[in-house]
Lab assay of single mutants.
Amino acid sequence: KYSDMIVAAIQAEKNRAGSSRQSIQKYIKSHYKVGENADSQIKLSIKRLVTTGVLKQTKGVGASGSFRLA
């Protein structure tokens, strides 16, 4: 599940300011076997996790910027 992968990526990075979408994508692609549409799936999952309150956006708008666990 992409949401689990995103949470794992943010936990692994341990950046106080949060993790960027690009760094999350890079982590997921190197640690998991994902399909061609992974980028758009990650983007959608990040937006969903922010609206449900699992992630907090520290910089930027939408799916860009930095995110950390709430």
Rank of each mutant, 00 (worst) to 15 (best):
K1L: 12
K1N: 12
Y2L: 08
Y2I: 09
Y2P: 02
S3Q: 10
D4Q: 11
M5W: 12
I6E: 00
V7R: 04
A8M: 06
I10G: 00
I10Y: 00
Q11V: 12
A12H: 08
E13V: 07
E13Q: 10
K14V: 06
K14R: 10
K14T: 10
K14S: 12
N15Q: 06
R16P: 15
R16C: 15
R16A: 13
A17Y: 14
G18N: 03
G18M: 04
G18F: 04
S19I: 10
S20V: 04
S23V: 05
S23C: 10
I24L: 02
I24Y: 01
I24T: 00
Q25F: 12
K26C: 08
K26Y: 07
K26S: 10
K26V: 08
Y27T: 01
Y27E: 00
I28Y: 00
S30N: 08
S30V: 07
S30P: 00
S30A: 12
H31S: 03
H31I: 05
H31G: 01
Y32M: 04
Y32E: 02
V34E: 03
V34R: 01
G35N: 05
G35C: 15
E36L: 11
E36Y: 09
N37F: 07
A38D: 04
A38I: 14
A38R: 02
D39N: 10
S40Q: 13
Q41V: 08
Q41C: 15
Q41L: 14
Q41K: 14
I42T: 01
K43W: 15
L44Q: 09
L44T: 08
I46W: 03
I46F: 03
I46A: 01
I46Q: 01
K47E: 14
K47W: 15
R48V: 11
R48N: 12
R48F: 14
R48E: 12
V50D: 03
T51R: 13
T51Q: 15
T52Q: 14
T52A: 14
T52D: 11
G53H: 04
G53N: 03
G53P: 01
L55K: 02
Q57M: 13
Q57S: 07
T58Q: 06
K59P: 06
K59D: 07
K59C: 14
G60A: 07
G60V: 07
G60C: 10
G60Q: 07
V61I: 11
V61E: 12
G62S: 06
A63L: 11
A63M: 11
A63P: 07
S64Q: 12
G65R: 12
G65M: 14
S66W: 13
F67L: 07
L69A: 04
L69F: 05
L69K: 02
L69E: 03
A70F: 09
A70M: 07
A70L: 07
